[in-house]
């Protein structure tokens, strides 16, 4: 009965959802590069406007998107503090013992922090609006040319989708085994770190045994259904570019043009 959201997919339907996953993968990459090449805060504001539009056009909401920053808070804070203290450039703002904060330092610190935040937010747009299966499909298709030089594009995407398929099953199984061992008096909650790690053995061994058994049976079932690797395989859903993909691409190209202009003008 466990509901696991992987890759934080947020089910919905809007312009962004209907885009081809390949378009979204490529454009996300383009936006990340855009964030990197921006030299101005106005440029960041442009990207942030885009994130805002995504948050509201999809009904995901900015609040939900900002939640995704939580695990990265430490890294962002650290980047901010290090830049603040180590960059020395321009007028002095604070001088307190060996601590010296300069105007240039503050600017770089804020700049780097904003850049990181925008990176996370833009890549989140991708994971929030693309189901894991569409993501694997898109990745496989994009990587397909690489399979000519021996890159296992199909195998990697098959592995990813099987992993996605079995995560809920194995979560459920973990819970069952946990209960069974608790009924035999196992204690998973108390004790020091070492004792707790040891207490996991009765949970992990059966879980691995079962995972191997499942893998074995699944392999057999796949073979019985004529599976023999990616060669000559077709797809139920052929990925297809539509008009909206061109619109999205054009929008990103326009953002690039504005960004380059902003950089050249050297606006704040």
């Amino acid at each position: 009965m466990m509901n696991v959201t992987i890759g934080q997919y947020f089910p919905g339907d809007s312009f962004l959802y209907r885009l081809d996953p390949r378009t979204k993968l490529i454009l996300t990459l383009a936006l990340i590069i855009l964030v990197f090449i921006s030299k101005t805060f106005t440029g960041f504001a442009l990207v942030f406007l885009f994130v805002l539009w995504c948050a509201f056009s999809t009904k995901i909401g900015l609040k939900y998107m900002l939640k995704g920053l939580k695990p990265l808070f430490l890294i962002i804070a650290l980047t901010f503090v290090l830049n603040l203290l180590l960059m020395k450039d321009g007028a002095e703002l604070v001088h307190w013992g060996i601590l010296r904060i300069t105007e240039g330092g503050l600017r770089t610190a804020v700049f780097m922090a904003v850049r990181l935040i925008l990176l996370v937010l833009t890549s989140q747009v991708l994971t929030l609006t693309t189901s894991p299966i569409a993501l694997t499909d898109g990745l496989e298709t994009l990587m397909r040319p690489l399979s000519r030089i021996g890159f296992p594009a199909h195998e990697i995407s098959m592995m990813m989708s099987i992993a996605l398929r079995f995560i809920p099953t194995l979560m459920e199984e973990t819970e069952k085994i946990r209960r069974a061992q608790m009924a035999r008096g196992a204690d998973f909650e108390s004790g020091n770190l070492l004792q707790r790690a040891k207490a996991m053995v009765p949970l992990l061994v059966p879980l691995f045994v079962s995972a191997f058994r499942r893998a074995d049976e699944l392999a057999m079932a796949m073979e019985a259904r004529c599976y023999r690797g990616g060669e000559g395989r077709t797809k139920l859903k052929q990925l297809q570019f539509h008009r909206q993909d061109a619109v999205a691409a054009a929008a990103v190209v326009a953002m690039y043009a504005i960004m380059i202009a902003l950089n050249a003008l050297g606006v704040f």
């Binding site: 398929r165 139920l236 859903k237």
Partner: peptide
Amino acid sequence: FQNPDNQIVATVVEEDCAFGLENRGVPS
């Protein structure tokens, strides 16, 4: 097969149903 869980490959019902046909290279 016997175990319902261990013979379903895909995360979506219709994708799973298509698995064998995809393997045989049937047009979309």
